[in-house]
Design a protein around this nucleic acid. Sequence first.
DNA 1: AAACCCGATGCACAAACGTGCAAGGAGACC
DNA 2: GGTCTCCTTGCACGTTTGTGCATCGGGTTT
Lengths: 323, 323
Amino acid sequence: MSPFKAAQLSPKTRDALTAAQLYYLQDLTMDAIAHELHTSRSSVSRLLGHARETGLVEIQVRSPLDMPRQLEGDIRATFGVTAHVVPVPDQTSDVERLDRVALSAARILGGFVDSNMSLGVAWGSTMSALSRHLLAKPTHNATIVQLNGAANPRTTGILYASEILQRFGSAYGANVQQFPVPAVFDDPATKAALWRERSISRVVEMQKTLDAIVFGLGSPFAGVPSHVYIGGYLDDNDFAQLRATGVVGDIATVFYREDGSSDGIPLNDRSSGPSLDVLRGIARRVCVVSGESKLQTLRGALAAGLVTDLIVDSGTARQILAG
Amino acid sequence: MSPFKAAQLSPKTRDALTAAQLYYLQDLTMDAIAHELHTSRSSVSRLLGHARETGLVEIQVRSPLDMPRQLEGDIRATFGVTAHVVPVPDQTSDVERLDRVALSAARILGGFVDSNMSLGVAWGSTMSALSRHLLAKPTHNATIVQLNGAANPRTTGILYASEILQRFGSAYGANVQQFPVPAVFDDPATKAALWRERSISRVVEMQKTLDAIVFGLGSPFAGVPSHVYIGGYLDDNDFAQLRATGVVGDIATVFYREDGSSDGIPLNDRSSGPSLDVLRGIARRVCVVSGESKLQTLRGALAAGLVTDLIVDSGTARQILAG
DNA sequence: AAACCCGATGCACAAACGTGCAAGGAGACC
DNA sequence: GGTCTCCTTGCACGTTTGTGCATCGGGTTT
């Protein structure tokens, strides 16, 4: 209307806000809201969807404080990590399990992200699913940093990895730092050379001072092999080597054993991911896992002290405690 | 099942918690949840209702931080109080307006209440509506204190006032301190005598050290007279006196003028409510108002510095700024 | 043992809701 | 001016959800 009263926020957001207020705080029906806002009920439905997507509405489920959830307490006691157990019925398929955990993880992650922070992000099927469920949370001056390269002999991987990164960036209104290198180098010397390039070393340096990281776990020999292992990133030789050295998993293409050790794994010298020591130097390390096929893998990551916050499905949570 | 694993929370609460998690955090349909919980869909619907009622689920609507809502900002700038403006369309009836404001107020109040605190509560139609919408929030060692008596020549008023108090008590799991005295004494000497009784003075003393209070505003001469003014608490003489001394409203049967002054109002000496000076000594003073008939009344309360947090409908908010 | 009360359950129906679709509008580009 | 694209809107439909009602089981009173 009047151009004098600057509309600080878009009319859409304004409406979404009122709608949310009326719907969630006053329990009006969408019909009633539509009437008040002079629009159609379906628009209100969409408006509310928008409000949820963009984080205008925040829904929390909080167990009574005096009774933290059983499994989560047990996990903290046993492994010293903060756990978020996502309830999933036992007979759920692995894909649905993954998706449900990723969905919850996306919501939880919103609570960790804040202005002026830098967040390291891995890639893989878990991260991909997670990125698709992110809720918007506008921040200032935050940075998203890719943890490891995604190129392989067949593709540059840029499309795949950057899709994930971009979703993080736009959800949080953050800068995105890509890392356009192969996931695993053929020749360690090439890696060393590239690491001396300023455009690359800049990112490598950023990785060392991250405030938080999010990652899934890769499991090379599990029933459902992870993205890394079927994407042509590794050849038969590499696989044999991994098996020979007792590897049970990886974080950002850096490999470790079930006891948490990672010394003497040659592949790590050729990997583009940050060394486990670098990872351990980061304050908050959020690990998202689902499915029993990752049990061993998860055990290793916990043993290696790579995790500070664990988001996991209830079945796997129970098993890791039982084991 | 096993008696060894102590069930810390009732199975109902446990189910409600999982259901809430699945519904609000994983966006499952109630049907799907019913299946997972081995019960009927309708039970899940009820379970979720229970979860909301009891505060297991918390829903917040948060305007983007960089743009606090217009009216609320204006009110803070003009009157120096934190405002919560409840959107209500202009042509809404007064009763519905009251109810919607009370509903929102009940939710907001939950954010102010905490363990170990004492909360003073008034009575009246606003407080009655508010009490009916309270959301449960379990706390330890909190106390609810009645601010002013409710007895009048016709009834003891205990039923009416205690109903309100009880709802507060059970919502927050708090002790309730009743105040079984007349709202307004016929003879000031009786009040003085009663105030020397230890059972009464105990409550009077508590009133002086409250952490917070909630109250509506009474408006003696407005189009819709408040509960106090039609309950037989005052006689014609009293009314005449109020009008003569320029009273525009009351908080817990203590009266004030539009400019905020309250000296030379004889009725106040006979009132059971805490003096305005006592009120002003309380850190958080939450005022719930709705409807333009309370405009003058609200103006007086603001002028008197009796309010720190204001919960008000949008129409009245606009008018108080316009005035 | 009968009678009673109370909370929990599922059914069935109406109300409320999400979403694919086609229509309308506002730029951007030719 | 045309037309192409992209976003928004309301409708219509199928799905999802709230709730009155009848039922049932367990505990208490008579």
